[in-house]
Amino acid sequence: MAAVGDSGGKSVDLAGARRYAADWAQAVHRLGFVPLSVAETEELLYAHTLRLAAVLLDTEAPAPAVEAVGRSLVDAHLTEPGVVEWSVRTLSDRFRTEVLADAAGRPGLDARIAAMQGALAAGFARALRERTFRQQEGIARAMWQARDDAEQALRDSEARFRAVFDGAAMGIGIAGVDGTIIDVNQAFADMLGYSVDELRQINVASLFHADDAAGLWELYQELIEGKHDAVRVEKRYYRKDGSAVWTDLAVSLIRHDDGRPRFTVAVVEDITERYELQQRLRFQALHDPLTGLPNRTLFFDTLSSLVELTDPPGSVSASSTWTGSRRSTTASGTPSVTGCS
């Protein structure tokens, strides 16, 4: 640059070079995206204008210096094809008259300008090609990286899920929307006396206790129709040996990205013991321990429910779910203590 300034003092029209650089900057801004302001672009192109002028007035081979200018256009992200077109064309039609002062008439300039045009285009093309390769490689690498990351995240979450699934004390079962069991954990299988593989062959419906089946299917349907996202009930299942197991059952729905139902996930706890204990306690509270006959509490409970007072004081919270089906079967429809009959 300093050298250009020296020689430019005599043979380069600095004001002309300014005007040329300003036009150049306007042109590149019109042509494509430029990350610099117009003033910054003009500053950069002014330096290039002086550089090109120095080469033109020099006697050395123009190639390396002019190729570098072409390259630096690409480095500055002035990569629109129109940029190289403008830069090459104006080198022969305006550059000499506008930028060169008293040197404009020097002999041999035409040939030199032609060589410079070639070098400018070559430098630009080479740099653009390299940049394209670099960016394509970069984005492809980023894509693989993103894919690896996503797979890793999936594996991690799968591993976390597996640990919870396998290690849970509660039974966990996953079924399709049609009820086909997709997977269950060991606790679930143990609770029902099947092997995991056996359960993977069957439909959840065949596990429902006959008395609860209709209500459960209804709940499943409501879940799948989106009426609830999750339900929690106390229901009975059949064990493989035909006996019943009381469970506290929480079912939730997993949807596809577009909202369609995909799986149901059931988390099941065996509450048979608790349930039976409740029944025993309840029976004891309402019956004479010696004779097993209903006691006064039961008498007044029944009486009070008949006169439609409140729920019996001895009613356990759990009863609200399991007595539900029974209530509806009582002819009167009034809450009753039939749960312990």
Partner: peptide
Amino acid sequence: MQKPDGLPAEIDLSRPSAARVYDYFLGGAH
């Protein structure tokens, strides 16, 4: 599939991405 953070867990290369379309319009090769 969704990751726990709600971001898509799969990279779908059959779909254009807003970020890459934008890069193209800015003259990039990403």
